[in-house]
Nucleic acid binder design. Sequence first.
DNA 1: AACCAGGCGCATA
DNA 2: TATGCGCATGGT
Length: 270
Amino acid sequence: MTKDFCVRAPFFDLAVSVDCGQSFRWEKRGEFLHGVAFGKAVDVKQTGDILCFLNTDEEDFAKLWKPYFSLDTDYEAICAQIGKDSRAGKAISTFPGIRILRQEPWEALCSFIISQNNNIPRIKGIIQRLCAMLGDDLGNGDYSFPSPEKILSCSLDGLAPIRSGFRAKYIMDAAEKVSRGEIDFEKIKSAPLQEANDMLKCIKGVGDKVARCTLLYGFNRLDAFPVDVWVKRILELRYPDGLPECFNGYRGVAQQYLFHYERTVNDSNG
DNA sequence: AACCAGGCGCATA
DNA sequence: TATGCGCATGGT
């Protein structure tokens, strides 16, 4: 019998971290957030600095959720460094506690292939239908993220019900290359950032944006810097001479704060 | 009814 | 190297 488990989690904002455009499978259920990762469903709520998990023991927390939420990493120190830049500092003081989640590589890759030229509500819908159709039934309406092999077994036309449009063929190509070992997550893990990026770009439908998102959110490569339309606008407007040196090593973290600040506050003349 | 959405592939010069 | 266009689908 598992029991509830509570832990102190300073400098962490659960709600914003799971809903700032880096993950697509978390939903609010009352005061809890409900999500699935590693083939396990979980409910978490945050009250001040305290994080409470339902039906989770200390072992699961230590093995799964602590690394997933990056609670083993000193984000306060990271943010102190990138916050030396005034604009990043403003984003951090407005939304302190955003952390880069450590999602599974395949889920991150697949999710950000689906994200291209798409909006967040629909991205969530497509991923939801993909999991419901091909993921393992975990009970209570929860499904795991389907493996590349499971997706391969259903063929291109079989993906039609998820309504992913032109992205379906990209998902299939990714599933093929991962399943066949042509894309090797272990190699990507240990390769220099640029080489890892190039490996991922061999997949149809994976360009710099999707590759960098995969590296940042699926491989915890905190220096990977995804540039979407929002970040591109920030770069042109605020950093015309390039990124400040204090971002070095953590460009992806800086990106996440700047991205979220820009999207929510949306003050074009700040 | 056009336009847009955390892009990318392909054609063209 | 740098543009421009089409792409499936759904929301505004």
